[in-house]
Design a protein around this nucleic acid. Sequence first.
DNA 1: GGAATAGTTAGTCATTGACCTAACTATTCC
DNA 2: GGAATAGTTAGGTCAATGACTAACTATTCC
Lengths: 110, 110
Amino acid sequence: MSAVPADAVFRALADPTRRRVLERLGRGPATVSDLAKPFEMALPSFLQHLRMLETAGLVSSTKVGRVRIYRLVPERLKLAEDWHARQRRLWETRLDQLDDLLKTLKESES
Amino acid sequence: MSAVPADAVFRALADPTRRRVLERLGRGPATVSDLAKPFEMALPSFLQHLRMLETAGLVSSTKVGRVRIYRLVPERLKLAEDWHARQRRLWETRLDQLDDLLKTLKESES
DNA sequence: GGAATAGTTAGTCATTGACCTAACTATTCC
DNA sequence: GGAATAGTTAGGTCAATGACTAACTATTCC
């Protein structure tokens, strides 16, 4: 299977730590140590999560002096949201079809 | 980290094969071999994906004779959708706050 | 009852993910 | 310039994932 860009996004979302980081970044940019503070994890482990988020394109970072600042890239989250939207549309279409079927059956009863 | 139920859902979504299965099931229930047909994969490998989807609660199955039928459990997908919605709300709140800030700055200029 | 069909179980293997410690580099601040 | 701070790299462990083949069970159909 060819690895579409969406894959990296979904895989990035699959970890609770990373989702919490995204939630935090939803409230505005933050430095590595800011982001790391709420987690018990050793820094290098945490950095791996940040790297994964960044390669998925969900966050971006810039280094200012010895500090690195991360910010959300919300457009990227849309990839996943869009999938859900498509999926829901599909599902709802199907319910409509069932509806139609039931209606037809009811009508042919009389 | 305690494994919340949402975790299993997100992890299940992290694989393209499984997402395609969900898309297929969005168009209605199907048997194991129906579902497996579009994939090059050996059956046992494919079954593992189905099992993962089922333990995540995203699909359910019943066996009828020697055939097993899978169907979508759309309520479960909502867990992930809700996360996105919450995330978007957060993000938009933040944009509003930035807006307010900019407005305030502009006003104090005059 | 025997062959074909549908799914299942068992066992192997390589890769990736999630964590760790130890040691290092680069910047800032006194 | 030396100490403190912020992040980075290297290297290692362990469990889970994604795939395979081979062999098995349960059902249906002739």
